[in-house]
Amino acid sequence: MSIQHFRVALIPFFAAFCLPVFAHPETLVKVKDAEDQLGARVGYIELDLNSGKILESFRPEERFPMMSTFKVLLCGAVLSRVDAGQEQLGRRIHYSQNDLVEYSPVTEKHLTDGMTVRELCSAAITMSDNTAANLLLTTIGGPKELTAFLHNMGDHVTRLDRWEPELNEAIPNDERDTTMPAAMATTLRKLLTGELLTLASRQQLIDWMEADKVAGPLLRSALPAGWFIADKSGAGERGSRGIIAALGPDGKPSRIVVIYTTGSQATMDERNRQIAEIGASLIKHW
């Protein structure tokens, strides 16, 4: 067993022997301040990774656009098919120029040779490549099948209805392509620590998230040296922004954090800054 596999296998073990965790309302004060600064709703939840206990939450059962955070769930569904012998990570998928959609920095470079399922998941999570996500959605049967996968996990809230990039439209009061912070946090925890996926697939999923290259201005910008984070960000229309993450000190994750916002007129930089400040408060009061 590799060191990384050992780390993920012992996530519940280490967490069980940690000192009790206590909620700190100071972080919620910052979440509410972010709402004021952005002029928009902000949803927040913080779960203990081992027990699933909610440590703090704000608007945990209000719907927010998922945006690209759905790509972690998508690759979880792909990995479940791999575990069941219905898919192979090494299978190569070929596609054409007509398949390319807006923001496809990886797939646009491989029109000639195609990409493997493993490479597509890596591109979808680490670079948020939209064509990679659409190609992977095709392998599982489309958005409705991802929703069905989530329902089978016990998540009857999260739903995907459309493809990239239309799913980022974020129309107010439109339930399409949305989740709730509580539902997303619980589902992410199941994917990373539950028995739904094999140990190898859980490790692969967290490795992809740990290698995320496009979430630097968010929670990662607030992390002290030595902290662990595996995350996936999302951005959408109407001032929408979000991030889902597993993080913790001492090089291992111990909490799940989900943050979503929508309806702001603020710039992307300002949305990023507010999420980073929430992260800084979380870490300060850990």
Rank of each mutant, 00 (worst) to 15 (best):
V106Y: 15
L247K: 01
A133T: 02
G85I: 04
L199N: 02
R91P: 01
R202S: 11
N173P: 09
L74Y: 00
G236M: 13
E237T: 13
P65F: 12
K284F: 06
P65Y: 14
D36V: 07
T147N: 03
E210N: 15
P224W: 02
H94L: 07
R220M: 12
S221V: 09
P65W: 02
E210F: 14
L137A: 09
S264R: 10
T126P: 07
M66V: 11
E35K: 07
S233F: 01
R91F: 14
K232A: 01
H151F: 04
R159C: 08
P224E: 10
N272F: 09
M209H: 00
E56R: 10
E56S: 10
L137V: 12
N134Y: 11
V42H: 02
A123P: 00
S201T: 08
L282R: 01
A132L: 00
T116S: 11
L28D: 08
V258G: 03
N130D: 11
D33A: 02
Q97R: 10
L74S: 11
A183F: 11
L136Y: 00
H285A: 04
L219R: 04
A246I: 06
W227K: 00
R273C: 14
R81Q: 07
Y260C: 04
I283M: 05
E195P: 10
T158K: 00
L223K: 15
L150I: 08
I259H: 01
L282V: 05
T27S: 09
L146K: 01
R81H: 05
N50P: 06
N152F: 04
E61P: 01
S96L: 13
L55V: 15
F64T: 02
D48K: 05
H94R: 04
A235W: 06
R238M: 01
I243M: 15
V31Q: 01
L146M: 04
A34D: 07
I54D: 11
R159V: 12
I275N: 01
D174E: 15
S104D: 06
E277C: 10
I171R: 15
L219T: 05
M153Q: 05
R59V: 03
A132E: 00
Y44V: 07
E270S: 05
G279D: 01
L74W: 00
A40M: 03
L136K: 00
D177G: 05
T187L: 15
V78G: 10
L73T: 10
A170F: 02
I275P: 00
T116N: 15
L79P: 00
M180T: 03
D83W: 05
L100D: 05
E210K: 13
H110D: 13
R255H: 09
A245V: 12
P249Q: 12
E35N: 10
K32L: 13
E210A: 14
T131D: 02
T139E: 14
I283P: 02
Y260A: 08
T69K: 00
L218I: 02
V29E: 15
Q274C: 07
G85N: 05
L192Q: 03
R273W: 06
N272G: 13
I283S: 05
S264D: 08
M67L: 13
A34T: 05
L191E: 05
Q265H: 05
N134K: 09
Y260D: 01
V257H: 02
L282M: 08
E26T: 13
L146I: 14
S201P: 10
L247T: 10
L197Y: 11
S122E: 09
R238S: 08
V257W: 09
S104M: 12
L219S: 08
C121F: 01
K252M: 14
A123S: 07
S96C: 10
K71S: 00
G114I: 05
M153V: 02
A235C: 15
L218H: 03
P181T: 09
E35D: 11
N168F: 08
L47F: 12
L111A: 05
R176H: 10
L146D: 01
L199S: 07
V117R: 07
G226Y: 13
A185G: 04
Q37F: 12
E270I: 01
V101P: 04
S104F: 09
A170L: 02
S96M: 14
D207E: 07
D113V: 02
T27A: 10
L205V: 04
R81K: 03
T138E: 03
R273S: 13
K71Y: 00
D129N: 01
T107P: 01
R162G: 10
H156F: 13
G85T: 06
N134A: 07
S240I: 02
Q274Y: 02
E210P: 01
A34S: 11
N130L: 03
L136Q: 02
R91A: 14
P143H: 06
V31E: 01
M115E: 09
I45T: 06
A40Y: 09
A225K: 12
I54T: 10
G52P: 09
Q265T: 06
R202G: 09
A276K: 14
S68D: 00
R118E: 13
G142S: 07
L199Y: 04
Q97N: 02
E61C: 14
N50A: 06
Q274D: 09
A185P: 01
R59G: 14
C121E: 01
A133W: 00
R202H: 05
P217K: 15
E145M: 10
T178F: 14
H156C: 05
E145V: 05
P224T: 04
E210M: 14
D250A: 03
Y260W: 04
L120S: 10
G242Y: 00
A77G: 08
G154H: 09
S264E: 07
N130P: 01
E270A: 07
D155A: 02
I244E: 01
D83K: 03
R41A: 11
R271G: 11
I171D: 15
T139N: 10
D269T: 06
T27C: 12
P217W: 14
S201W: 08
G194D: 09
A84D: 05
V117F: 09
F70Y: 13
V101R: 03
K109M: 06
L135A: 07
N130K: 01
G39W: 07
S68V: 00
L192M: 07
T267Y: 03
N130A: 11
E119G: 11
M184C: 02
T262K: 06
L191V: 13
L199Q: 12
E164D: 01
G194W: 12
R41F: 04
E108N: 15
R81S: 06
A200K: 15
A40T: 08
L160D: 02
K30L: 11
V29F: 06
D155V: 01
E102P: 04
I278V: 14
P143S: 11
T178N: 02
I171P: 15
E46P: 00
P172I: 03
Q86K: 04
D48N: 02
K213L: 04
V214I: 03
A211F: 10
R92W: 04
I259M: 03
Q97Y: 08
G234Q: 01
H156L: 10
R176W: 10
R271Y: 07
A266G: 06
F149I: 08
H151T: 08
T147Q: 05
F228Y: 08
L38R: 12
S128V: 00
G226S: 12
D161V: 05
A280M: 13
R255Q: 13
E102N: 04
E62W: 02
R271C: 11
D269F: 05
R189I: 05
V258L: 03
E169A: 05
E164T: 00
P165F: 13
D177L: 00
E277L: 11
R41Y: 06
D36L: 09
L137C: 10
V42E: 01
R81V: 06
K252I: 12
M127Q: 11
L79T: 05
Q86E: 05
S57E: 02
T112D: 13
R41S: 13
A170H: 03
V29L: 12
L167V: 09
V258H: 00
M127D: 14
M67S: 12
T126W: 11
G236T: 06
L73P: 09
R91V: 07
N168K: 07
P25L: 09
N168E: 10
T131L: 05
S96N: 04
E145F: 14
P253N: 07
P60S: 13
R159G: 09
E46Q: 13
P65C: 13
E26P: 12
Q274M: 11
L218P: 06
